[in-house]
């Protein structure tokens, strides 16, 4: 399990990355994150949905209701071009941080 702060900090880039590969609805995003991280990224609806709404209010993603094959309609989220730009910036920041830590620790320590 990752720490709370790290989860919170990584939420935005992870969500944006998942959406950059195609539109998805809330539960789907959560499951993908869980799968990708081998069960390490545990989000709750209480953190995910408000975040989605905030990103939408900022204009990084957009949403639309589509009917589902089973049961009621679902709210799908899709990344906007502004979201793409922010994602690129986020990516650079994370890689930078990663690179700094790698330099500090050296290859052996990083692996160990």
């Amino acid at each position: 399990m990752l720490s709370k702060q790290l989860v919170a900090a990584s939420l935005q880039p992870i969500v944006l990355t998942i959406l950059s590969r195609g539109e998805a609805y809330g539960y789907e995003i959560m499951q993908r994150a869980l799968d990708l991280s081998n069960g390490q990224l545990v989000w709750t609806a209480g953190t995910l949905y408000p975040l989605m709404h905030r990103l939408e209010a900022k204009g990084l993603i957009s949403s639309a209701w589509h009917p589902s094959e089973s049961g009621p309609r679902r709210k799908y989220y899709r990344i906007t071009s502004k979201g793409q730009t922010v994602l690129e910036a986020d990516k650079k920041e994370w890689i930078n941080v990663h690179a700094i830590l790698m330099n500090l620790w050296g290859p052996e320590l990083a692996i160990a």
Partner: peptide
């Protein structure tokens, strides 16, 4: 619509 979204979430959860 927030409630509707959350409802869908619960349903998906139950489904899986």
């Amino acid at each position: 619509e927030d409630i509707e979204e959350l409802e869908g979430h619960i349903r998906d959860h139950v489904h899986s």
